[in-house]
Design a binder for these strands. Structure first.
Length: 479
RNA sequence: GGCCCUGUCGUCUAGUGGACUAGGACACCGGCCCUUCAAGCCGGAGACACGGGUUCGAAUCCCGUCAGGGUCACCA
């Protein structure tokens, strides 16, 4: 039994999004679970749209998710190169071989001609299938085209038959290949198209299992046919269901945060994201949800992957994030993530690690996104900003309560003990026959300019006596 | 339009002919706690798309209908 080899083969035409990340993750899980190899291959044969910077972003984001590959463009391997743009001469030989054997043919049709043809067929409500007008071109006609300056593309000649294969997720699938149009395998500029490139590379890289999105289901038949023409054994295929937007349409930018980069900027934790997307279309036998990656690997089973699409629900992912922050991550891990996040969002808090760590410890139970920590950071680092409404509210407060609050805070000394702050404030209220809520509200407003936020004793604790008094005196002058 | 795939609470799912009064999680609603917003704890509401079969028995098997998605590029 040869070793299992899988791959993730993105084209660098955009950011790594949730769907791609999940496909990569399932390949990674399958490889790790079966002690196989996971390969990253860049499919950059579309020179118009491919950009090196996208490749960099994809690699960076996969790394952020801790999805690691054994071979790839950045680290090399025995089956390289791992960028299709660096393998161009390989494909041409195989295309020539197919032509020589009569399994492929030159096509001199221009893109415009093909487009007209397609529209015509569509208009007649017929499937847009290439009519093979270039299949039996005479030498004379070919020369004529060449003289016109036309450069031919190479089309694969689809043999008509009933074709079926066993999909790892959907089971037995079949189609009548009469419905499959002869695909172009080499563009007129000599660059392979997707359907040809994957076949050649998957074979040469000895890929054993192709795990990819459902949108490739129909491509599989074309690819299977090419394997057959080349007398190669095809890999196993597993088509995982797509991830849909809440409105059940294809997930895209307009549906909010769908790229890994955006999620990171919002304050998601990599482990939480991985855990969540692993559960999109798959669940372990025992229905556990929160699992560290090694447990996911251990429990992962491709046959347990569902065959119907899943809707992406960022709210549930937020809960996972909350759970990881509150219960799983070490404070130092959170601190590290916070630092990266500050850099990413171009924020700078001049707070010592020690202080940040204390904020983390005291706040992590109520935090959903890492960015939520910044709320308390802001309070500590910056003076409050008062809106007119808040100023108004402060003016309407009983001046006596003002005095009581200021005096009490001045007399108090145990600012380094949250419990003592808490009980002290309670006592102050009691002694003066006030509802605790009223003085809490006032102090909160004075210190932060807001109605909501972290627990008040915590705020006072982090501000300390000096800063607390300073802020109160400052606002007192205005009101 | 052809072809292909799919259909369990709003969402992710458990379920593989009897253990289903259909279980869990997020979200939602209510309560407790309480100095705000939360978090936490407790409770509640909420689904087998529809119609036919097969069977003693169907969420589970078959057929049809409807609905959703994918795909039909010199994009991947």
């Amino acid at each position: 039994m040869s070793i299992i080899r899988v791959r993730f083969a993105p084209s660098p035409t955009g950011y790594l999004h949730i769907g791609g990340a999940r496909t990569a993750l399932f390949n990674y899980l399958f490889a790790r679970k079966n002690n196989g190899k996971f390969i990253l291959r860049i499919e950059d044969t579309d020179f118009e749209r491919s950009k090196r910077e996208y490749e960099d972003v994809i690699i960076r984001d996969l790394k952020w998710l801790n999805i690691e590959w054994d071979e790839g463009p950045d680290i090399g391997g025995d089956y390289g190169p791992y960028r299709q743009s660096e393998r161009l001469e390989i494909y041409k030989d195989y295309a020539d071989k197919l032509i020589k054997e009569g399994k492929a043919y030159y096509c001199y049709c221009t893109e415009e001609e093909l487009e007209i043809q397609r529209q015509l067929q569509l208009k007649e409500k017929k499937p847009p299938i290439y009519d093979r007008r270039c299949l039996n071109l005479t030498t004379k006609k070919k020369q004529e085209y060449e003289l016109q300056g036309r450069k031919p593309s190479v089309r694969f000649l689809v043999p008509y038959k009933q074709l079926e294969f066993q999909d790892l997720i959907h089971g037995r699938l079949s189609i009548d290949t009469k419905l499959v149009s002869d695909p172009i395998i080499l563009k007129s500029n000599g660059v392979p198209t997707y359907n040809f490139g994957v076949v050649i590379d998957d074979h040469l890289m000895e890929i054993t299992h192709v795990i990819r999105g459902d949108e490739h289901l129909d491509n599989t038949y074309r690819q299977l046919l090419i394997y057959e023409a080349l007398s190669w054994n095809p890999p196993f295929y597993g088509h995982i269901p797509m991830i849909l937007a809440p409105d059940r349409s294809k997930l895209s930018k307009r549906h909010g945060a769908t790229s890994v980069e955006e999620l990171r900027k919002l304050g998601f934790i990599n482990k939480a994201v991985v855990n969540y997307i692993a559960l999109l279309g798959w669940s372990p036998k025992d229905n556990t949800e929160i699992m560290p990656i090694n447990e996911i690997i251990e429990k992962f089973d491709l046959s347990g992957v569902l065959d119907h699409p899943a809707v992406y629900d960022i709210e549930k992912m937020k809960y996972f994030n909350h759970y990881y922050i509150a219960n799983i991550l070490q404070n130092t891990e959170i601190l590290q993530a916070l630092k990266e996040l500050e850099k990413l969002n171009e924020l700078e808090y001049n707070l010592q690690d020690n202080l940040k760590l204390r904020v983390i410890e005291l706040e992590k139970n109520r935090i959903y996104l890492l960015t939520d920590f910044f709320e308390l950071f802001d309070i500590i680092q910056y003076d409050p900003i008062f809106s007119d409404d808040i100023l108004n509210e402060l003016n309407n407060f009983d001046k006596n309560i003002f005095e009581i609050v200021i005096n009490s805070l001045n007399e108090f000394d145990n600012y380094d003990d949250i419990e003592k702050i808490k009980s002290y404030l309670k006592d102050v209220a009691k002694k003066n026959n006030l509802k605790p809520g009223s003085i809490y509200k006032l102090i909160r407003l004075l210190l932060t300019g807001k109605h909501e936020g972290p627990e008040l004793p915590k705020i006072i604790y982090f501000l300390g006596k000096k800063e607390t008094i300073k802020r109160i005196n400052k606002i007192k002058e205005i009101v």
